[in-house]
Design a protein around this nucleic acid. Structure first.
Length: 265
DNA sequence: AGATTCGGCGT
DNA sequence: ACGCCGAATCT
């Protein structure tokens, strides 16, 4: 029997994929695909995998047989949406495999998810409130160390840099942790980000730290910097717009192609 | 008991 | 045609 366990880049680190060829019987020559969790548990179907991974990973466009995220096989919008809603209404458990959007990033970002559709009446799940104002550990931001944005299937996308004027406070004031700390501070509350305003916090952060502010020395922002940032945002929105447009066109082309194939079949 | 393997139901 | 999972078989 062929036992090739290979890494599966579309899944969290440590997951392995295995393909076993059937060697006898009516189905000889066909193959079965299995996955192994980092702890070694075996999985033999996509539903089983979904149940286990829960909301950690969206397997909506995960192809169990190949182990890859396939962008082509995504939403059959109308049908799937209706299917999900009906299923939900009947009191069935949400199908984690195809469920409507759930934020996939680390749970530190308690932000609502905006579902962008072609309809004007976009709904936003709003459950701020409870997300804020819980006790926090002193240096909890250290857990953000090493977080990086990455593509659904592949590697790190790109890094960002911070203005020179921003400096960390406390242990591990490395630059990437500082960036994550500030980013999550911006995500978690609408309160202004001032950094640690007391000078005492720099000398003895364990005592004087303001836990609702990022581990960052206080700083000033110039009008010039604000204008630069606004420009970046405009450019980013522009690229997003282009990307969405391109995706829409591609999807439309795909749909018409399917229609034509249906007629000749 | 646990792992492996193929059948066969349901979509 | 194929995904999924029961159950027979193997170790």
């Amino acid at each position: 029997m062929e036992k090739k366990r290979s890494d599966c880049p579309a899944l969290p680190p440590g997951w392995k994929k295995e393909e076993v060829i059937r060697k006898s019987g009516l189905s000889a020559g066909k193959s079965d695909v299995y996955y192994y969790s980092p702890s070694g548990k075996k999985f033999r179907s996509k539903p089983q995998l979904s149940r286990y991974l829960g909301n950690e990973v969206d397997l909506g466009c995960f192809d169990f047989r190949t182990g890859k995220m396939l962008p082509g096989k995504m939403q059959k919008n109308k049908q799937r949406l209706r299917h999900d809603l009906l299923g939900l209404a009947k009191g069935g458990k949400p199908d984690l495999n195809t469920a409507l959007p759930i934020r996939q990033t680390a749970s530190i970002f308690k932000q609502p998810v905006t579902k962008v559709t072609s309809h004007p009446s976009n709904k936003v799940k709003a459950d701020l409130q409870r997300a804020s104002e819980q006790p926090r550990q002193l240096f909890w931001e250290r857990r953000l160390k090493g977080l990086q944005s990455s593509d659904v299937s592949e590697e790190v996308l790109r890094t960002m840099s911070l203005p020179k004027g921003l400096q960390g406070v406390g242990p591990d004031s490395s630059d990437d942790t500082l960036l994550s700390a500030i980013a999550s501070a911006l995500h978690m509350s609408s309160a202004p980000i001032t950094g640690q305003t007391t000078v005492a916090a720099e000398k003895n952060p364990a005592i004087w730290l303001n836990t609702s502010q990022p581990l960052c020395k206080s700083f000033t922002v110039t009008d010039e910097q604000i204008r630069e940032q606004e420009l970046k945002v405009h450019q980013a929105r522009r690229s997003l717009e282009d990307a969405l447009m391109a995706d829409g066109l591609a999807r439309a082309a795909e749909n018409t192609r399917e229609l034509l194939e249906g007629k000749t079949a």
